[in-house]
Design a protein around this nucleic acid. Sequence first.
RNA 1: GACCGGGUAGCUCAGUGGUAGAGCAGCGCACUUUUAAUGCGCGGGCCGCGAGUUCAAUCCUCGCCCCGGUCACCA
Length: 506
Amino acid sequence: MSSQDEQIQQRRANLGELAKLGVEIYPHAFARRHQVAQLAEGYGGRSREELEAERIETITSGRILAIRSFGKASFLVLSDGLAKIQVYIRQDSMPALDFQIFKLLDFGDWVGVEGHLFRTKTHELTIWASRLHFLAKCLLPLPEKWHGLTDVEIRYRQRYLDLIVNPDSRRVFEARSRLVSAVRAFMDARGYLEVETPMMQPIAGGALARPFTTHHNTLDMDLYLRIAPELYLKRLTVGGLEKVFEINRNFRNEGISTQHNPEFTMMEFYEAYSDYRSLMVMTEEMIATVARQVIGTDQITFGKHHISLGAPFARLSLREAVRDAAGRKLGCDVSDAELRQRDTAASIAQQLGLASQAGHGPGEVTTDIFEALCEDRLIQPTFVYDFPTEVSPLSKQKADDPDTVERFELYIGGLEVANAFSELNDPAEQRRRFEDQLHDRARGDLEAHAMDEDYIRALEYGLPPTAGEGVGIDRLVMLLTNSPSIRDVILFPLMRRRDERSATND
RNA sequence: GACCGGGUAGCUCAGUGGUAGAGCAGCGCACUUUUAAUGCGCGGGCCGCGAGUUCAAUCCUCGCCCCGGUCACCA
């Protein structure tokens, strides 16, 4: 028998013994007076004498993370996931049945404890137990206390184990929760209305990406999981909701990497009468405010970089960034005009050693160069602005330059954290852009945007001048928690299915 | 998809072409203020899966599965 099977059998036997003693082995509730964390916080500063004088009685509960036994006296370490407290168990301080229960406990079990607080010889805050209540059994052996759990595969697949033994992991997800709250509070305070738009869409629009498909049986209708909420949120602006936002999941059927999970969380918002310039200012303020609320500072460490999230952020036009980087690499001047023409742009890309995609226009080539040369160098927060119209089918052109749209992306730590633009609200131009996308699609570009007649109709009813933005929540959490992989900030990242045999052998 | 690294006890990790190793966890005994408790003793392995080479494979070769990373793809 394997060590694991043996331990499971021993734990089951202990559970059986508890039942024989008449103990309810799966009790329904437990009324506690304090959480472990409340004890640690509230009484961690009390001296031995103070505790003796006050005689603080408590009832608390948690998971047993250690048992140190000395025969007739023992110590348990109890955790509520946030904090730990030690429990002193001695035979002559509790009913005989409770001590029998204690002897049948295993590392990992859930228990309730009654008793008073004191300090041991070594000054540790401890509960002197007068009662012990069995709450639930841990039938499987837990990872060890000292090295914790480092196998990333088990950490992702069995997140509960990660959370039990790795306090840092718990902290990451607490920070994530605070971040979502802080972003919501920031938007609330500015009068934005939080809405929820469809996750299942008949046309997957609002971004250039490949969708997941699904099917509704009763309607016998194919649907897509949304790649973005954009077109629905702008319909709401047409409907007169001047400031809206949504925090929710997007799904993109694409590659997986340290920066990409097939489902990810985005905060997307739209504001009538605004433009991309105003959104830069608002975004700077949001990032710095949220950082201070979540981690108490706007100065962060990300990998080997120190990054300041304090406003203002750097601003860099996309074509300038590309001209600069390409020019430096090639040792010659690259002009704006060269980047705007298909043949010259393609030739520059070729000289840079970038495989030119058939059918890519000058705008796409320019963004390809940007992604290859510039993206991962943008460590300090930087707004990259003014994108080629060709790669931005939903953005509004600059008044004096139809090749260029009013759009920016925010980069921090080499990660694309936000994407925003002044919204295209001319229905005739929007139809032309969609038609261009259809040509790309016909050419085999699976990410090209589909035609959305109802969206154009909505624009025909009149969308006021509007600016909109999407903020990648997962990537912001990565930055604020110094997590190198998006999987470290998603509780249950998508993993390949394992066959049953190796799964049961975990 | 390509390349690189990894998969050995519940966990963290060593290791060798010839009987499989440690620490922690587990079990037993001792111990009424320990805290990575201690001391003594014991158990626990399809060495990811499948072929091949070999007298002999956990180790070498090939294929496959899973994980991580880089690149490609992708906002």
